[in-house]
Design a protein around this nucleic acid. Structure first.
Lengths: 198, 198
DNA sequence: GTCTATACTCCGATAGAC
DNA sequence: GTCTATCGGAGTATAGAC
């Protein structure tokens, strides 16, 4: 009962959560088993249910962790640049080959999109809170004002998310890169793909 | 051996494939079991492996069926309209509440995005072939020419896909609709969200 | 607090009757 | 060609030792 120093259990829990967060993003929720997570965390299955009520409970915590992690890296990259430059940099980072190849450390919405679409209300509420917060930040870097900027922010996010997911799903590396590069061109809608760049 | 009329096995196989195609899109691949599919098709598990080598084999066939089905409905909706009008109509149909609420009858890329990102090479090749074919059609409705139109087509598809997936993942119906409506504004990039519409 | 061991359920796949 | 029955494996969750 008192064999471990105080805070040990909390540290263990956090270790499990961060490990699960990466594994869920890499393999998907259903393909990630509780024994797998515990082993990857250097533990065994037995102790798991002293930390979490269920696998779903773990997923809630892990998804939150992934969102927080994304938010941290977003905040870190925040500089004082023009809106256009901010969009260019953000898209370049999001639609990079590195991000494509490392879902376990990347955007939770993209990596878990299959699971989130069918998730329970509790998770969907987390998704919503995460997205609304994200969009609130994006909004300030769009050109319109008020509702227009918000709409533009949703489109911005949707195009990035869709591009990343598509680039991760095709067989050929060249096609995958083609998708990434095409979707980085945020400021060029289907109707004006002319003068901006060759 | 001769208890059933000729063509019966083919018909049974097709029944299994179309049933699976819908169930995979609705529940995801891992959550859909072979017994479930067979029961939904009015059959029992036993006969399954006389039609398919494995569950993965079924998924290949079912994914192909879903692509073909989407292609048929795309071709049907093809009218003689301006590029801008074509994009407006396509986005309106893709980003509709009906499509959002009926993944089992809708876009396979969106419904299966989680599975496709982690699929075997064989499936990824099918994804690629399907996407390239789709983009080839989209291209002709973009405004630029050559590579520019192709880039614009990828962006168009990515924004629709991302918007649909996001709209399916949030808890609140109002937010979901907000996302759909925002992403329908295809011709309004983040940089020019001003004069086009209030 | 974490371990080993196990109960219970369900899935993918096969065997053999009809 | 499709059925019933079952094997083998895996996954969630629990029990009890340390």
């Amino acid at each position: 009962m008192t064999k471990y120093e105080p805070g040990h259990k909390e540290a263990t829990r956090e270790k499990i959560v961060t490990t699960a967060s990466r594994m869920f993003r890499e393999r998907g929720v259903r393909a990630t088993t509780v024994p797998d997570v515990m082993e990857a965390a250097g533990l065994t299955v037995g102790g798991f249910y002293k930390h979490f009520e269920s696998k779903e409970d773990l997923f809630c915590a892990a998804f939150d962790e992934a969102l927080a992690s994304t938010k941290r890296s977003n905040d870190k990259a925040r500089g004082e640049v023009s809106n256009e430059e901010w969009r260019r940099r953000t898209a370049e980072r999001y639609l990079s080959e590195f991000h494509r190849d490392h879902p376990e450390a990347g955007c939770a919405f993209a990596a878990l999109c299959g699971d989130l679409q069918r998730a329970e209300p509790e998770i969907r509420q987390q998704v919503q809170n995460g997205l609304v917060g994200l969009i609130g930040g994006f909004e300030t870097h769009m050109s319109g004002s008020g509702p227009e900027a918000r709409e533009a922010a949703w489109r911005f996010l949707a195009q990035m998310l869709g591009g990343l997911v598509l680039s991760r799903s095709v067989a050929d590396a060249n096609t995958s890169t083609e998708i990434l590069e095409a979707c980085r061109g945020m400021d060029r809608p289907p109707s004006s793909a002319s003068e901006i760049k060759a």
